[in-house]
Structure formats: C-alpha cells, structure tokens
C-alpha cells in the first residue's frame, strides 16, 4: 500500500486525464498562469466539485470512503479562509492541541479566544493552516498559503509546514512565486495548455 496521494485519469474543468503522485513526506509544487485550473484541480482532489478520476490516499480509493472522511484525509487550505463562529477556538475540536503551535506560527496566545473577524488577514491565514492540520490529514492541499504574509511570517509558515511534512504529511503547494517553490518543494508541476508538466524549478 503506497503512502500519500495518487491521482490518475482525473478530469476537472480545463484539465483532462491528470495523473501524478505525491508520496508521504514529499512536497510537490504546482504553478501555472492565472486561470489555468490550479484551484479547480485542488477542489477536485478535495472532492468539492463533481469530477471523474481515480484517486487514492494511503492506498485507499476515494470511493471506499464517504466524502467527509475523504476530506478529513485530504485537507484543503484555500487562498481566502472563512470563519463562522465568534471565537477562533470554536473552530477547533475541544481536545485539539493546535494551540501549542501558535508560537511556531508567530501568533500571540490571545488570538485563540478572539473573534476571527477582528484578526488580520495574515493571522487568519496562519490559523487556517492550523485548522486544516487539526484532522491530521495524510495530504494537505495548499492554495497560496503565504499570500497575505510578510517575509518573517512566510519563513515561519514554511518551517512549520516542513515539520508537518517530516512528520509524514504529503503537501501539494500552489504558489506564484518560483523561488518559494524552489525553496520548499521536492519537485514542481506546471500546468501548460491544459496538461501537467513536471519541472525541476518553476520558471
């Protein structure tokens, strides 16, 4: 049973017959022009939109588990986070240990009980990473996870995600910054004319 994510014959929007694998403890970058289908590909892998294709996580096919179970195993952090309760803590399970990671992400301890609406976009973005990792997903799909962050916070997030990767999580990282992908990813995929091409670095 292969650990990580395996995608084959996936059709979603502009992309047809997409096939690739991400092993556990691997970080794969994804780049391409705006509108080329990066976010749609992540949404299809997270099973948020109807699509056809064969997907497995840790060797278990998508069809073998319910939609919610699949999305627990395949976490998705969108570019813009959304919050529904009046405190950050209410978005986490009661027994969650996520709070221990606030310092590592450069967040003050008091954000835990604050209203997400009064936090900065950068604070919300880091908290959304923490929230998505709370299910201990096997795969984490990251859509521009540092787009709202300054250099220092970006560095902390990259180091924190590298820890997650070392602990066994497979990462699929979308970014418009070639130097970031070169820094954090083991390899990079690029969408070109509706197909995925593997690069060593994103041009």
């Amino acid at each position: 049973m292969s650990k990580g994510l395996r995608v084959s014959e996936l059709d979603c929007g502009p992309l047809q017959s997409v096939a690739f694998e991400i092993a556990a403890r691997e970080c794969v970058g994804l780049c391409g022009p705006s509108g080329s289908g990066k976010t749609r590909l992540l949404r299809a892998i997270a099973d948020l939109d109807p699509n056809r294709g064969e997907l497995t996580v840790d060797g278990v096919p998508r069809e073998a588990m319910s939609g919610p179970d699949w999305r627990c195993r395949v976490g998705f952090v969108p570019a813009e986070s959304r919050w529904w309760a009046e405190s950050v803590s209410a978005h986490f399970a009661a027994q969650s240990e996520a709070r221990k990671h606030l310092d590592a992400l450069g967040l003050e301890q008091d954000v835990w009980e604050r209203d997400p609406a009064v936090l900065s976009s950068g604070e919300r973005q880091r908290l959304s990473l923490l929230r998505a990792s709370d299910n201990s997903p096997a795969v984490l799909l990251l859509d521009e996870p540092t787009s709202n962050l300054d250099e220092g916070s970006t560095d902390r997030v990259e180091r924190w995600l590298a820890e997650l990767q070392r602990a066994g999580t497979a990462l699929l990282w979308v970014s418009h910054l070639p130097e970031q992908l070169a820094r954090v990813c083991n390899r990079v995929l690029r969408i070109e004319s509706g197909t995925l091409v593997e690069l060593h670095a994103c041009d």
Binding site: A46, L48, G67, P68, D69, R71, C72, G75, F76, P78, E80, S81, R82, W83, W84, R131, A132, D134, N135
Partner: peptide, 13 residues
C-alpha cells in the same frame, strides 16, 4: 457558500 465549503473542507458533514 464560502463558509459552507470551508466547513466541508474540514470534513464536516
């Protein structure tokens, strides 16, 4: 819809 999908992404039913 964005909030609903944010919850679905976390494995909510």
């Amino acid at each position: 819809r964005d909030v609903i999908e944010a919850r679905l992404m976390l494995g909510h039913s």
